[in-house]
Design a protein around this nucleic acid. Structure first.
Length: 436
RNA sequence: GUGAGUGUAGCUCAGUUGGCAGAGCGCGGGAUUGUGGUUCCCGUGGUCGGGGGUUCAAAUCCCCUCACUCACCCCA
């Protein structure tokens, strides 16, 4: 058959992987700076374990099949449910338990811009604690990661499931209408207030309900003002009031740790996953980046109980590294390049010595990639190769150099070339690389 | 799952009312000896996604199919 990859799947070419890994290194460093430890879990889980966690919509997107042993298995859909299983299997974990997990997940969606069937998530979760500080920490990690990646113009939207519950309850909205109504509310950034009103009416909302719900999109001002106004719309419902109080405390922690953090209370953010029970997060970049949500998450205090046999609170976020890569690349903010700093060129009769020189350079240029042209070839060919690979410095070892224990060192950036004794080669090359 | 669009050289794409398949880039070779990027010359290149139909004649028109892209739903 002709070579091809599956719909929604893709290869990451070496040049892309350099960019990705550079970004992932930063993500990992931020995660660890907050005290999160890495966790790995298998790609495949028992299908039964994943079923019933993501709602009907999510369920349809689960890759599941029978393995050779007749077991029904499924590729993980996210990293949160596997975490829940892990917590359930390890009752002796000390809380607070902080773990991060960077790995691919699979969803059988129809592929689209910035949307794949296999993609990487970068999750941090804080397990065992239910507190405003814990809720705030996720926001702080998110902000720290995006800042570390060079982004400043992002916006973290937060809401609380209980606020929505209280609001809808205060409006006596029937249970079967909750999901459709939340779906409409979630479109707040995409449609106008009037369109929203029409869609709400189409869901059977009466004029008072429409007015109140559509009014959410008109809430403005500072977070305090938005919280207060939203609570009014919810008629001061006790559950909504508790949610507003909680969010107020969360925002206070965020502000203390990261003054001016771009965090906004957004009463219409709903989030699709079934298991969220408290705060929910969503982070967006400005439209010119051309990607949707780059981070989302929330508190899920019931999920772990399904595996642990006792309630364990938890909160977490998930960053979409593929979208971040795409976003940064689209703005020319992704730094890539090759991994090689020096190419050692050899010619007929000097290839053995060249291998020794390359090894010597590797020992003396800590961390710099030193590549040996793997066969004798015309100098022109070797320089062309270095040029196209973006290698900044070449060391030419020909017969003349061999005879005099020297090497010709050329900077491909400046075009300058010098002949230096082998004894001082590493120092000379190091100088060229540092000066740039 | 629903709707729309696109498939022509390795890549990006032209191709007129149906009439001999093109360009740019890339790739290979060359322009004095062991030296890249710029320039110049020469060359390599295609079952026009696949199958069927209409026609003297189809990349072009019709039907089917596959793949990809985009939007909706949902979502990282």
């Amino acid at each position: 058959m002709k070579p091809q990859v599956l719909k929604g799947f893709r290869d990451y070419a070496p040049e892309e992987m350099v960019v990705r890994q550079g970004m992932l290194d930063k993500v990992r460093a931020v995660f660890e700076s907050f005290g999160y430890m890495p966790l790995h879990t298998p790609a495949l889980e028992y299908a039964e374990l994943l079923l019933g966690k993501y709602g009907d919509e999510g369920e349809k997107l689960l890759y599941k099949f029978e393995d050779q042993g007749g077991r029904m298995v499924a590729l993980r859909y996210d990293l949160t449910v596997p975490l829940a299983r892990f917590v359930g299997m390890n009752p002796n974990l000390r809380f607070p338990f902080r773990r991060y997990h960077i790995a691919p997940v699979w969803r059988a969606e129809r592929p689209q811009k910035g949307r794949f069937r296999e993609f990487y998530q970068c999750d941090v979760d804080l397990v065992g604690i239910d507190s405003p500080q814990a809720d705030a920490e996720c926001i702080l990690v998110d902000c720290a990661v995006l800042s570390a990646l060079g982004l400043s113009d992002f916006r973290v939207q937060v809401n609380h499931r209980a606020f929505l519950d209280g609001l809808l309850e205060s409006l006596s909205i029937p249970k079967e209408k909750v999901v459709p109504v939340l779906r409409v509310l979630d479109k707040v950034d995409k449609i106008t207030r009037d369109e929203m009103a029409v869609q709400l009416a189409a869901e059977g909302m009466d004029s008072h309900q429409v007015e109140t719900l559509a009014g959410l999109s008109q809430v403005t001002g500072s977070n305090e003002e938005r919280l207060a106004r939203s609570l009014e719309l919810a008629g001061g419902h006790p559950r909504a009031a508790a949610a507003v109080e909680r969010l107020t405390r969360v925002l206070r922690v965020v502000e203390a740790a990261h003054p001016g953090a771009p965090v906004w209370f957004c009463p219409s953010v709903a989030r699709g996953l079934d298991y969220y029970t408290g705060i929910v997060y969503e982070t967006f970049l400005p439209p010119q980046f051309g990607v949707g949500s780059v981070m989302s998450g929330g508190r899920y205090d019931q999920l772990l109980g399904t595996f642990a046999g006792r309630e364990i609170p938890a909160v977490g976020i998930s960053l979409g590294i593929d979208r971040l890569v795409a976003a940064l690349s689209s703005q020319g903010m992704a730094s890539g390049g090759g991994v090689t700093s020096v190419l050692v060129c050899c010619m007929e009769g000097t290839e053995v010595k060249a291998a020794g020189v390359a090894a010597e350079l590797r020992r003396n240029l800590a961390g710099k990639g030193v590549e040996l042209y793997p066969e004798p070839a015309r100098v022109k060919k070797q320089i062309e190769y270095a040029d196209k690979a973006g290698i900044p410095v070449i060391v030419v070892l020909g017969e003349q150099e061999l005879a005099t224990s020297t090497a010709a060192v050329k900077s491909l950036r400046s075009g300058t070339q010098e002949t230096v004794p082998l004894s001082g080669l590493a120092a000379h090359v190091a100088g060229l690389l540092h000066v740039r």
